[in-house]
Design a protein around this nucleic acid. Structure first.
Length: 448
RNA sequence: GUGGCUAUAGCUCAGUUGGUUAGAGCAUCGGCUUGUGGUGCCGAGGGUCGCGGGUUCGAAUCCCGUUAGCCACCCCA
């Protein structure tokens, strides 16, 4: 019987695993640089947690089952509900702002295809306890940095920035109530992939004869790419009283957000684009998605504000903003831009062993160097010198430790620096003292 | 859930109108005297040609079915 891995699940051979760890390392480093703290949460959760957040239809896309105790459970498809629970449970004792991140595997039962698997890693970054746009700016700056750290620049990706609050104001100006707004936002979210007549048909159900004119105004809004035009557009909306005040305040928030992003050096990566709505109902303010600039490929990351979710999942009122970045589309992009190399680590030392007696000496020295934290290897079976040197080279060793009968007799080991070709004998009983200097400087050609 | 494409060695692929025992490169392993460098030379292992049926004297090749993978649509927290 031949076994294969399950569809959409990956196996990581050492080179792939090293590459994955490199990506995690970069993510982690950026999160640390922004002073976010790492947390973790269970991979398996009660199914109800996800239904509560996203509704029954979610179940079709979950790895869910009944455990032996009769509990209905699911592998986590995302981190946010677990995180919201963690936050909610200790909300009153956590110092704010709460800046947390996680890197973990997530699972969705979907048909695997390009950029999308059933098991994937996500970099989740969130800020809780700060409702002002400074938090959104901080998070977007981190998102941009988390992509730039791989060598991607503003020609490679953009962060499209939108705002559900502005949309709600625009829709209020159109006379839509809350329910109507929700429906229309869903349509706007998909506008990019919908043919125009079809969109009008969908809008007609909510707006009647005004659908086509409405769509025109929506398209006008979506085309806006700079703040001044956006500002003008919003101020020209037929809003009165409280709504007009809200609109002005919201523009101030936009101004602050864009200012913050600019100060963080991320302005080149931002593209105002109200076409981004993000289908999820729980988003409440600014929303954003990082996209490959070419327009090809899937979203690299997505996020936004979700001020109501912690409360909805049983916690106190807690403003929140966060994003998630997946590893699958990121690796696709980095590969296409040739920004990934090989990350397998090479040994510091490989012993070249002349015979049985030499083997004892080599193993004893290897044990010593290993205990000092150096990466040391030696051949597990006796082989000719030529072959051993060849192998040492292929493994990328920095130094050869040569143990032949002459060296053993003298109580030394001959060290060869593969980079310079220089060899020097070291007294074996002085390895502890001499090795740090050797590793930091290597062996150089001696000049008189 | 719908559609398209593909399937030959670990990987990338050849394989003629159907014709002996299915090949190459890379990779792996061994050898080229137990004292010196990645690309050199010699050699070896490794394939039920995805699987099942059919046509034929004869099938990797033609036909039918099936499975898996990839890609696109749907969806995408």
């Amino acid at each position: 019987m031949q076994f294969q891995s399950l569809p959409g699940f990956r196996e990581f051979y050492p080179d792939a695993c090293a590459r994955r760890n490199h990506i995690f390392g970069q993510w982690k480093q950026v999160a640390r640089a922004f002073n976010f703290q790492e947390y973790d949460a269970p991979v398996l959760e009660p199914l109800e947690l996800y239904i509560e957040k996203s509704g029954e239809e979610i179940v079709g896309q979950l790895f869910n089952f009944e455990d032996r105790g009769g509990r209905t459970v699911a592998l986590r498809p995302e981190m946010t509900p677990s995180l919201a629970r963690l936050i909610g449970a200790k909300a009153n004792s956590l110092k704010r702002p709460i800046k947390w991140f996680n890197i973990g595997e997530h699972y969705r039962y979907e048909k695997p295809q390009k950029g999308r698997l059933r098991a994937f890693y996500q970099f989740n970054v969130d800020i809780f306890g700060e409702s002002g746009p400074a938090a959104d700016a901080e998070l977007i700056a981190l998102l941009v940095q988390a992509l730039r750290t791989f060598g991607l620049d503003s020609k490679d990706f953009k962060v499209r920035l939108s705002d559900r609050d502005l949309w709600l104001l625009m829709l209020a100006a159109e006379g839509l109530d809350e329910a109507g707004s929700a429906t229309v936002l869903g349509i706007i979210d998909k506008l990019e992939r919908t043919e125009r007549p079809k969109a009008i048909e969908q809008l007609y159900k909510v707006l009647g004869d005004g659908a086509e004119g409405f769509l025109g105004r929506v398209e006008q809004a979506i085309a806006i790419r700079d703040f001044d035009t956006l500002s003008e557009f919003i101020l020209s909306l037929p809003l009165e009283g409280d709504l007009a005040t809200q609109a002005k305040q919201r523009l101030k928030d936009w101004h602050a957000l864009l200012g913050g992003i600019k100060s963080a050096g991320a302005a080149d990566f931002i593209q105002i684009d109200l076409g981004i709505v993000r289908g999820l109902a729980y988003y409440t303010g600014f929303v954003f998605e990082a996209f490959e600039a070419s327009g090809e490929g899937r979203a690299l990351a997505g996020g936004g504000r979700y001020d109501a979710l912690v409360n909805k999942l049983g916690g106190p009122e807690m403003p929140a903003v966060g994003f998630a970045m997946g590893d699958v589309t990121l690796v696709d992009l980095l590969e296409s831009k040739k920004l990934l190399s090989t990350y397998v680590e090479s040994p510091d030392f490989i012993a070249i062993i002349g015979g049985a007696e030499a083997r004892d000496a080599a193993m004893s020295d290897a044990a010593l160097l290993r205990s000092m934290g150096y990466r040391v290897d030696y051949p597990l079976k006796d082989q000719g010198f030529g072959k051993q040197f060849k192998d040492a080279n292929q493994k990328g060793a920095r130094f050869a430790l040569i143990y032949g009968s002459e060296e053993i007799e003298k109580g030394v080991v001959k060290v060869r620096d593969f980079a310079s070709g220089v060899e020097q004998e070291f007294l074996r009983n002085q390895l502890v003292e001499l090795t740090p200097e050797l590793v930091s400087n290597g062996l150089q050609e001696c000049r008189p």
